[in-house]
Amino acid sequence: MYLESIGKYSLMLKQVFKKPQKRKIFWENFFREIDDLGIKSIGLVGFISFFIGGVVTIQTARNLSNPLIDKLYIGYATFKSIVLEFSPTFISIILAGIVGSYIASTIGTMRISEQIDALDVMGVNSLNYLVLPKVLAALTFYPFLIVISMFLGVLGGWVAGNITGMVLTEDYLKGIRYDFEPFDITYALIKTVVFAFYSHYSLLFRILCKRRFTRSGESQHPSGYLDQCNHNRI
């Protein structure tokens, strides 16, 4: 069973990463996906990151009330948690949910209304046409989103620390520079790219590959695609 899935996954991968049939159309789709999957998520990512940064700072400050512990550790803890965990992991999970729903609904609708069949019978490589721009757009743009999330998260922490008076700007800035390891950023971005690839590709695999290889002729209900989306999110 698992071997069969790996086989299908690989076969789909081969079709997806073929050279696009029409380069111009591929780039059009790619930039449309950048807009749909990336640009339109900036607002939400920024909003969540800013407030989470604030919450992390306040919570850390409340737990480091011991006068023997330097205040710079508040900024240090905020920075590390945002850069190493919150932005690359949690924002990616949130994006997988939002973008997953978007992909599941668009591809699911296309499948049900026979638009994917229409692409196939026209001679269009539907996997390449539909999946490649989405996967590449996610891989290209998500690192930017995560960098924005990191910046706004740290900014949110500074704003919250200042407004509440729990941490001074000087201490906060010292904290985020303390023991700074540039590889942390690289590590976070690698994590993002891997997560973006896995989440998008596996969702699309579930939706497209399943019907392609195990097509049984029965009609599919839209809820089936939402199930795929939920499964992917989990």
Binding site: Q115, A118, V121, M122
Partner: peptide, 16 residues
């Protein structure tokens, strides 16, 4: 061969 084929689907399958 598929480029030589035209298909009208039951639900039209127009790209919405």
């Amino acid at each position: 061969i598929r480029t030589e084929v035209g298909v009208v689907f039951q639900g039209n399958a127009l790209f919405d």
